[in-house]
Nucleic acid binder design. Structure first.
Length: 283
DNA sequence: AATGGCCACAACCGCCTATCC
DNA sequence: GGGATAGGCGGTTGTGGCCAT
């Protein structure tokens, strides 16, 4: 006999969450905290299962989520951690405050994995594909470092480094060939991008919350709620969000947004969704 | 303008583990 | 000790947006 389902699925809503549902869930959690996920949808007036509410909160509604693209430094760190930990996404995510395991997993599957393949690196073993095919054993740490070195080398190519006469390892030569094949294009950093990077740096709400609660770098809604009364938690959330909005507002390249009305709507109605809907498409 | 393919990501599914009784 | 349950986790899928034709 298999496991019992987490909830009675009859009459439950599935699929994408609406703004109204987000509001209900967010308001409930900010007001009451999380005691038992199974009870959350009933008490919050949602036709969702507890598991779905939990995922929605963790992956999307948490105020300390860091929105926006991954930096190359983050990419490198993910590669290094993946070489050590494998597909243990939650462990990897614990090194990135404000990032979720789902987000990192998606980023790995859609971007980093492909990037490594293009560069001739096996994303599973972190060995060069040629070596992997020959079943080269061991040296995991070295291969991880090689993956990161590749990314760093790609960065240096993107700024058209003139220092390409240095002696290269076979591995680096393989990578150079791949890059030539794929015609990696130079990316000029625009003022907008710089603004965006500054913005990303200002987005980490976690410390504002953590400094009020504890010094843990790995955020857990349950931990936070266990340490605070609902009122205290709500108050801190509001203060953090207020600081965050002020901070973001001063950096935003407003002219570049696609639909200002829509962005402002999201800002007003679902502050935590702000970055998702407001980041300019050119980024 | 229509459409089909591709891509990114949110959400779901099912298994595993920890905890409770 | 063992069954039931909730939470956590990783794999997979569905869907919407973008882009080329």
């Amino acid at each position: 006999m298999g496991r019992q389902p987490c909830c009675d699925k009859v009459g439950l809503k599935r699929g994408p969450w609406t703004i109204e549902e987000d509001h209900k869930l967010m308001n409930f959690i900010l007001s009451n905290g999380i005691q038992c996920w199974r009870m959350v949808p009933k008490l919050a007036g949602l036709l969702r299962c507890g598991k779905s509410c939990r995922l929605r909160w963790i992956n999307y509604l948490r105020p300390d989520l860091k929105r926006g693209g991954f930096t190359k430094m983050e990419d490198n760190q993910i590669i290094q951690l993946h070489s050590r930990l494998g597909n243990r996404w939650s462990k990897i995510a614990s090194h990135f405050p404000g990032r979720t395991d789902n987000e990192i997993k998606n980023h790995w599957n859609t971007r980093i994995k492909k990037k490594l393949k293009v560069l001739g690196v096996d994303p599973v073993s972190h060995n060069p594909i040629e070596q992997t095919e020959k079943d080269v054993s061991g040296e995991e740490n070295e291969t991880a470092q090689e993956s990161i070195t590749l990314i760093e080398q790609e960065e240096s190519m993107e700024v058209k480094s003139e220092d390409q006469d240095h002696a290269k390892s076979d591995f680096a030569q393989v990578k150079d060939q791949k890059i030539e094949q794929d015609e990696v294009k130079t990316v000029d950093e625009t003022d907008l991008l710089k603004s965006y990077e500054m913005l990303c740096g200002s987005l980490d709400v976690g410390p504002w919350i953590n400094q009020e609660t504890n010094t843990s770098t790995s955020y857990s809604s349950q931990e936070s709620n266990n340490n605070l009364s609902a009122g205290e938690f709500h108050s801190i959330q509001e203060d953090s969000l207020s600081q965050w909005i002020d901070s973001v507002d001063s950096f935003l390249p407003w002219d570049s947004f696609n639909n200002l009305d829509e962005d402002l709507f999201f800002l007003e109605n679902s502050q935590c969704n702000y970055m998702k809907h407001s980041v300019p498409k050119c980024l």
